[in-house]
């Protein structure tokens, strides 16, 4: 028996068909612009980025200091209560070495995106940023990092006012590095559910 699905349809188009105009296509380049209101919390966040510091919001009810800041707490669903200036240092929660740009160009030198848990915010409160001034091979989860700010006159009130985060020298990573040895399979396939 061949098995389902049978008689599947769909006609592949090859790149050459497209390039040589053997199939018709029409193109559309949207030209639209948006002006996003930043709101109260992120407006202040951007303002403080311009001032060279990171700011969070505290929810007294949940005892959380949250970054990025927000005017309401998504857990207790009440308003947040106070602004808290937090440090511009933190810990790498996770990272990647990306050899592909956002528009899928290949990169020789990788970008190093990371989630950085910010010191002074509640545990686990991270932001997305990139690491710099570090060899890709040296990056570790648990590494202590600090913000490298653009010069004050170049800041615009954007997350990119922090050029990147760099390792704090002399602070060894808190966590052990990812295991490199693959897990060894048992010799035989497990036959019984009970073994799990």
């Amino acid at each position: 028996m061949a098995g389902q699905p049978t008689n599947v349809r769909g006609t592949p188009v090859r790149s050459a068909d497209l390039k040589k105009g053997r199939v018709f296509t029409t193109t559309y380049v949207p030209r639209i612009q948006y002006a996003w209101d930043t709101g109260q919390a992120i407006g202040r966040y951007l303002e403080e980025l311009k001032n060279g510091r990171l700011i969070a919001r505290r929810c007294n009810n949940c005892q959380r200091i949250m970054i990025p800041p927000r005017m309401f707490c998504e857990r207790c669903f009440g308003p947040t209560h106070a602004w808290v200036v937090v440090k511009d240092t933190g810990t790498v929660n996770t990272f990647s070495l990306s050899y592909v740009s956002w528009d899928v160009r290949r990169l020789k030198k990788p970008e190093i995106p990371a989630v950085i848990e910010i010191d002074g915010a509640s545990k686990g409160m991270g932001i997305l940023h990139v690491l710099g001034n570090v060899s890709p091979k040296a990056v570790r989860i648990g590494m202590k990092v600090r913000a490298v700010w653009k010069p004050a006159q170049q800041r615009t009130g954007s997350i990119t006012d922090i050029a990147y985060f760099e390792p704090i020298k002399g602070k060894a990573p808190a966590a052990k590095r990812t295991a490199k040895k693959p897990f060894k399979a048992k010799a035989k396939k497990s036959k019984s559910r009970k073994r799990r």
Binding site: T38, W102, V115, I159
Partner: peptide, 21 residues
């Protein structure tokens, strides 16, 4: 749109970050 897009993130990033974690 405001706090992450300016960093030009790539969809691969979030998968790589999650996989590494």
């Amino acid at each position: 749109n405001i706090t992450e897009q300016p960093l030009k993130p790539n969809l691969l990033w979030i998968f790589a970050l999650e996989m590494n974690r």
